[in-house]
Design a protein around this nucleic acid. Structure first.
Length: 195
DNA sequence: GCCAGGATCGTCT
DNA sequence: GACGATCCTGGCG
């Protein structure tokens, strides 16, 4: 088997200029690739500026400013002092929101992923937001980067996929009632089985 | 297989 | 000075 090129079109600014929950749902089945290394998105979460689980809920600060900015830019932040989590800013400028990419089905550049995560079996390469950042080499220097151009790219699906499964977001303590986690139906590559 | 606990640091009060 | 949008390890059964 040979890895094939990404088939779909690169997502443009307008794709991200919508409510975070719509973008999160729409990103399931799309691909995320950085410098030839990446895979198919199988798990996302939406965060909106008007609900307390979102970092932007506290308003504009040095860290959250990017969330209020133009859609289609990366928001990368340090979680628990250890892991860098990759998000894409959504909504019109001035309207804070983002989508956290939580898991990928690894597809391109597997050898580079494995060398970045020595000793890990393939199912653990990208099955979590911290894990996929390691596998793709995403770090703090990528914060605010435009994903509509440049080395981090998102592409539309090669073919239409089944509707994602929606459920509560993981690892948060506020606004847990919102069903804003989306998983590809039946995918074994998610960080946890979909509810 | 499951669960409890620890690592580690930027950001905000 | 407290708190995480997480991950890994080790103990136990």
């Amino acid at each position: 088997l040979t890895a094939t090129a990404v088939a779909g079109a690169r997502l443009g600014r307008e794709f991200f200029a919508r409510a975070p929950s719509e973008v999160a749902r729409g990103l399931i089945g799309c691909s995320l690739v950085r410098d030839g290394v990446g895979g198919v998105i199988v798990e996302t979460e939406a965060y909106a500026g008007n609900e307390p689980a979102c970092h932007a809920f506290v308003g504009r600060t040095a860290r959250t400013e990017v969330l209020f900015g133009a859609p289609g830019h990366a928001y990368v932040y340090l979680s628990y002092g250890i892991h860098h989590l990759f998000n894409v800013v959504t909504g019109e400028e001035g309207d804070a929101g983002a989508v956290l990419i939580r898991a990928l089905e690894p597809r391109w550049g597997l050898d580079r992923m494995r060398s970045r995560r020595p000793g890990r079996p393939d199912p653990e390469l990208c099955s979590g937001p911290g894990r996929l950042s390691l596998a793709l080499g995403i770090g703090p220097a990528d914060n605010r980067r435009d994903v509509c151009s440049g080395p981090i790219a998102l592409h539309s699906p090669e073919s239409a996929a089944a509707d994602p499964v929606a459920g509560p977001r993981i690892g948060i303590s506020k606004a847990t009632e919102l069903p804003w986690r989306f998983c590809a139906t039946g995918s074994p590559w998610v960080s946890r089985a979909a509810g």
